[in-house]
Design a protein around this nucleic acid. Structure first.
Lengths: 373, 373
DNA sequence: ATGAAAGCGCTAACAG
DNA sequence: CTGTTAGCGCTTTCAT
């Protein structure tokens, strides 16, 4: 990290704090308004919740109340409403890393959709830690969220099952747990990986490394399975020593690439299972003074805005983050609004291989090879 | 947008919903526990809030209560506590675009720091819209947040001033408003721009375009001011027609670059005032079949992980996002915890010019030019 | 060492 | 057409 940790601090203005001037207008409540207008709190409540006509409240009192509310800058206390109504109009969003563009773009749609539907979102970044995630889930429960969208780092869905039992609506994104009775939405990770690795194979690559992410998570396992199956379909044996790594983070990509590049028979291609991993690949390859494509071909999961403008524009497997977020919201709100019981439907949205220039075509497949296995 | 909007849906498992099995354990409360143990709710409350010794509650009842709490999986209802205590341990985070890496990295630190301090964060993405922002702020008030961290899109701080009046602790990030009595923290935008543009000038550039972001926002104005002053310091006149654009988004960078590149006397360099803008520059330049550096030099505000691996590694002005977020939290929690009145200290954290290869050195400055102005 | 009761702000059943 | 009252789950006087 190049960044210097000092910071300077300029005092632009430091007027003295003056308690006498600090007229902190106390927040008005239905009680305040009731007193002002000379009606009961019930009536105020009815007007404010739009039930004026239902209860045939006289036009006069209604506008009096609305006027007072306006004047007193009234806004209903959502805490009190939530407590009373057992519905808070908040949903929890639990993701492993908000700084990862994949998740931040999902957060973006989720926030937008939630807002449209009148919900606020409580954001929890689990930092890829199961413990933090578990704490976050407990917390969200105590905050009475109406629902949950979660990309769990847990390897089994145990703690999620407990939650589901409690009957709190939830949907899992970018993961799926076979035993969990709740809808999930994620990319077609298997197919995406299959496409990518097949493409490498069809371009003549035989020594293809796979730098994987956090093991036992569905996206990782599915992608690795795609990697394997691509080999199988092309009648190639999988070289297990080429499947390396254990985290979706950049460092994993960096370290594993460094090691791979030092090998006696260096792989001709790398399949990076996430955007951050390929970032690490980029760093390692540059550090070794090598060039992507000429020296190693690379395909990465996750398309990025920058992918197209890299020294070697990167061939990637694009996910439809936007759609994933949208579907997740839809599934969640269905459960919340219609009190629909969760079913374990698994939505899988297709990926797309975006071919750019990071894969070198290696001479025609030798006769010998074409018969192998 | 290349993405196909269809999605397929695979039903992995769809066990029938069974209300009888669905034992939705009702949440336990202090009342439940009190009943279980045979004490009053008061005592339970005291134990659960750690005031057992203060009230000299007998060891026996205490462990009985703790045991019951454990067994019944009790967790205090934060809504009720918030209502009663007038403190919710939530803070609002309002930012213009959570998908922008700059803001998502700030969100990351804020979330982490908040969690450490026992706070949850409610995320609001204002989508660069003042109206959404205003709504979000009202909403957060009704949710009784204990504090606010906001990167306001508003051009004056009017709606923020109203809020500050209400006495809700807040700190502004990446913006500053002269009249707003609350601390702010942002980069030294002026100096960063000054450095960047000076560097361009010192490399011989005289036709330097500035693609700016949202006008009348402090980071934009400060950066443009830096652009101007860099010229002035080098005794160069500013060509007003070279200051273009009006948004921090990618499209703005794209469009303005397209136009700039078509000009009769095309600028030799572009100073892009944000990461997204330079992304647009990248796209436009590529589309025109030109090369960054050879055909146009570029410096962008905001360093990115990918900046170093671009076709032409980009010279950037790096901000210390991490520090900005941390300082913001510190300032906020100071106000919240110590009921410290807000002072309008403005924290400005330095930027760093990261020189890479996107700036071409243009022949020595001519004698004629060195005397100009 | 422990409880009863009031109240945070709101809504809804019940009662006119 | 409007009001009284109880209660959501919790904390906190004030009693004992």
């Amino acid at each position: 990290m190049f960044i210097i940790l000092h910071y300077c601090c300029t005092i632009v203005c430091a007027k003295q704090f003056c308690p006498t001037f600090m007229k902190v207008a106390k927040k008005s409540t239905i009680k305040t308004i009731a007193a002002h207008v000379g009606v009961s709190v019930t009536t105020v409540s009815r007007v404010m919740t739009g039930q004026a006509t239902d209860y045939r409240i006289s036009k006069g009192t209604e506008i009096a109340i609305r006027g007072a509310a306006e004047k007193l800058d009234y806004a209903p206390n959502q805490l009190a409403r939530g407590l009373r109504n057992r519905q808070t109009y908040t949903i929890g969003l639990v993701i492993p890393d908000i700084a990862n563009p994949f998740f931040s773009s999902i957060a973006k749609v989720v926030e937008m959709e939630a807002r449209k539907a009148g919900y606020s979102i409580i954001l929890c970044d689990s930092q890829e830690s199961t413990n933090i995630e578990i704490d976050a889930l407990r917390l969200l429960q105590t905050r009475n969220v109406d629902g949950l969208i979660i990309s769990s780092v847990g390897q089994d869905g145990k703690h999620l099952e407990r939650l589901a039992q409690q009957g709190i609506p939830m949907v899992v994104v970018d993961r799926s747990f076979p035993n969990l009775k709740c809808p999930s939405v994620s990319s077609d990770n298997y197919q995406g990986a299959l496409d990518a690795v097949s493409y490498l194979i069809e371009n003549g690559h035989r020594m293809i490394a796979c730098i994987q992410g956090l093991r036992h998570t569905s996206p990782n396992e599915d992608r690795v399975r795609g990697y394997r199956d691509a080999h199988q379909r092309h009648h190639l044996a999988v070289n297990e020593s080429l499947i390396v790594g254990d985290s979706f983070g950049e460092n994993n990509g960096y370290i594993e690439t460094k090691i791979l590049l030092k090998r006696a028979n260096r792989p001709t291609a790398i399949f990076a299972v996430s955007n951050l991993i390929s970032l690490g690949v980029l760093r390692a390859v540059a550090e070794e003074g090598l060039k992507i494509r000429d020296d190693v071909s690379v395909i990465s999961f996750d398309d990025q805005p920058y992918s197209n403008y890299l020294a070697t524009p990167m061939t990637t497997v694009a996910q439809q983050n936007y759609e994933i977020g949208k579907i997740a919201c839809k599934l969640l709100f269905e459960q919340i609004r219609f009190k629909k019981p969760p079913d374990a439907k698994s939505f899988v949205v297709p990926t797309k291989l975006i071919v750019r220039q990071s894969v070198k075509k290696i001479g025609p497949i030798s006769f010998d090879e074409s018969l192998r296995n």
